[in-house]
Structures are given as C-alpha cells and as structure tokens.
Amino acid sequence: MENTEIELHNIKKAFADGSKKVQVLNGISAKVGKGTLLTIVGPSGSGKSTILSLCNLLQTPDDGEIYVNKLEVRKWDVQELRRYVGIAFQSAPMTKGTVLENLSLPLKLRGKALENPETYLEYVGLSAELLSREAKELSGGQRQRLSLARTLVNNPSVLLLDEVTSALDTKASQGIEELIQRINKERSVTILWVTHDLSQAERVGDETWLIKDGQLVEGAPTKQFFSEPKDERTKDFLNLLRSSL
C-alpha cells in the first residue's frame, strides 16, 4: 500500500462489565490506504464502533498504536485530529436547538458562521424548510441525515461512518451511498464505513473487513471478500446473514 492513511498496530481494548473485564478488541493490525472506501461488518457488539472511536481518540487503546497520516494519534493536537478525522455517530445525537444550530455547530466551535446551510441539507436530501425546526424533534432518519451533513461541515480528510443509513428507506439510503461515493472519489476522502447491511457493504466498498471475537478475521478487496472469502468464519458469517434474508 503506497500511501497509508490509517494504520492500526496490535490494538487491544477491554471494557469493565461490572466486576469482570471484557476484551473487546484483542490485537488488531491493519492498514487503510488514502482514498480507500473501507466497509466494516461484524456481529453486534464485536467492537466496530469502538474501532472508529479509537481513530480520532474519542477512546484510547489499552495497548497498541494508531497512526493517522503517519502520526500516532496521541502525538496529534487532539482538536486538529478530530477535525481531520470526522465521525458520524450511530445514535445521531443532537444538541438542544434548531437544525441550523446543529448544522453550523462545527464552525461555531471555531467562532465562524456557516455560509451555505441549504447546500449541506441538499447533499443529504433534506429540505431547507427544516432549518428552523428543533433538531431533537426530527425523525430518526432525518436526524441520521442531519448528523452526517454536520460531520461534513468540517470537511474531514477521513470520514468515520457508523450505521449512517440504518433508519433510512432504500431510496434515501441510495442517495447517501451516492453522496459518500462522490465525496470519496472527488475529494479522495478516506472512508471507514461500519454497516449491518451486507449488500451495502458489497455495493460501496473498495475493501471490506470482518470484525469478530476481538479479531480482524478477514480484510480483503470487497469483491473478493464477498465472492471468495478465505476464512471459514467469514463464510459462516456471510451464509448466516444471507440465509436469514
């Protein structure tokens, strides 16, 4: 890989569950090239969201290093790192206030105003009429789209997407997929996209990872991952989900 954007080096992370310790990530090593659109799949609770939050230091690994643009995340200026690596959370959280206030939050934090809020809403297929609405009152799908638009306002070089279309219908999902692919191609933004939707992971990905039992079970070019998986656990995972459809 000629130009690495993100490198995970033997990452371990455990959480306390009451009195016992749960080892969520148990030694993950991998690289993501600049401009790659990576899709990440795996069972619920396997640590996909945790991997994303390690990439912009919202959490710190217990062991191992994470390099973003060749620099270990703990060596970055924290705020600069978090603008370079943007995240759209699984829960699409909103602050008190209007859609406009939420959308312009990234710039407000730097004392600037957002010039073209309508453009950002348009990107994600939301009507400009929503700008004055209370953000917490939006529907799940609307919040998800607003949350993604808000992350884009910082114009990050790396984009972490956590289940950003789970509350959307097929048509709206397609719109988001097209948007993300466009951002990826036109601006060479590196993308790590966690999704439960296997057909989505297959459609949009350049590369795909399966995270399971604290391990990176298989990481391969997306086509190959889905057509000829090498690891038995990948085959099982794909078969199980396909048969349940």
Partner: peptide, 9 residues
Amino acid sequence: ELVLSLGGS
C-alpha cells in the same frame, strides 16, 4: 462527546 468529536475544546 459530539462536541469533542467535532473538534470542540
């Protein structure tokens, strides 16, 4: 965490 993730102090 949202504000922190957006690069807020």
